[in-house]
């Protein structure tokens, strides 16, 4: 072996960085989400988990640009296309529902830059 003093430290550092997730402290399991109030979501829960952002984006466009406010789901049920009135009426705990998964996967949606988290507005009313 030649030039070990030049090869070994950088190589060990490379291995350490590469395997860092394997040996660095405790890890996060799937976050516990707050139970929603209603019986069923507008679409199946599995589908919603993967695709809710696209549904919401689609709703926003339909409402703002086409004045189309009624969503008919796969089962033929009708819902108002509204984050605040439809989604948040069942999922009424943003911190323990939306935020937990979004923080877990480093997703920063900008829904609530315009929409109001109902919990927060209650608090501000009290104050």
């Amino acid at each position: 072996m030649y030039n070990l003093k030049w090869i070994l430290p950088p190589f060990l550092a490379f291995l350490a960085i590469l395997t860092y997730p394997l040996w660095s402290g405790p890890k996060g399991a799937m976050p516990e989400l707050a139970k929603p109030k209603g019986e069923a979501c507008v679409e199946s829960a599995t589908w919603m988990r993967a695709n809710h952002m696209q549904l919401l984006d689609h709703w926003r466009e339909e409402v703002v640009r086409n004045q189309s406010r009624v969503y008919v789901n796969q089962a033929g049920q009708r819902f108002e296309k509204s984050l605040t009135k439809t989604c948040l009426s069942c999922h009424n705990n943003k911190q323990e529902f939306c935020d937990r998964c979004h923080n877990y996967t480093s997703v920063k949606p900008y829904c609530f830059e315009c929409h109001v988290d109902p919990k927060l507005s209650e608090v501000s009313h009290v104050q």
């Binding site: 394997l22 890890k27 996060g28 799937m30 976050p31 599995t46 988990r49 993967a50 877990y104 996967t105």
Partner: peptide
């Protein structure tokens, strides 16, 4: 063709622990 990325992360966390 989206997937549930929270579940993806849980899967990977399982692998690395």
């Amino acid at each position: 063709h989206k997937v549930d990325i929270a579940l993806v992360k849980t899967h990977i966390q399982g692998l690395i622990t």
